[in-house]
Amino acid sequence: MSKKNVRILALGFFISGLLLALFYFVFPAPSSASTQNNNEVDELKSEVSYLQSKIAEMEVAQIEEPAADVEVEASEEQPEEDTEENNEESEENADTEETEDATEEENQEEEVEEDPVVTSTVTIGDGQPSSVAASQLLDQNIIEDRFEFDSFLEDNDYAPLVRPGSYEIRSDMSYEEIAQALMGR
Rank of each mutant, 00 (worst) to 15 (best):
N156K: 10
P28S: 07
P160D: 11
R7C: 11
L19P: 01
E76T: 09
L22W: 05
M173L: 06
G184T: 03
E105W: 13
V132W: 00
N141K: 02
N39C: 05
A74T: 01
L51M: 11
G125I: 07
M183S: 13
P160M: 08
S34E: 14
N86C: 11
M173Q: 05
S130N: 03
A67C: 01
A61G: 02
E114W: 06
E104S: 15
A74S: 04
V132I: 11
D69H: 06
S90F: 10
S16I: 13
S171T: 03
E91K: 10
S174P: 05
S135P: 11
K3H: 13
V60A: 05
S130L: 07
M183E: 10
P164E: 09
E73F: 09
T35D: 14
E100K: 02
E71T: 11
I143C: 00
E148T: 09
D82F: 05
V41F: 13
E176L: 04
S49G: 04
D42Y: 07
T99S: 05
D172K: 02
V132S: 05
S2T: 07
E106R: 12
I63Q: 09
S174Y: 09
F23T: 07
A179C: 15
E64M: 11
A68H: 05
Q180D: 15
Y167S: 02
D150P: 00
Q52D: 02
N107V: 14
Y24G: 10
E111K: 04
N5M: 01
E89H: 13
Q52N: 05
A94I: 04
T83Q: 14
E73H: 03
Q78F: 09
L11P: 00
D157I: 09
E84N: 12
L137Y: 05
D42V: 12
L22F: 13
A134T: 08
S131M: 03
K4E: 14
N141V: 01
L11S: 02
T103V: 11
E105H: 14
E59K: 00
S135K: 13
F25V: 10
Y158D: 15
N38T: 15
F27T: 13
L19H: 00
V72P: 00
S174H: 08
N93K: 06
V118F: 14
E71W: 08
D150F: 06
E77I: 04
T121K: 15
E43Q: 08
A159I: 08
V26M: 10
S46P: 03
E168Y: 00
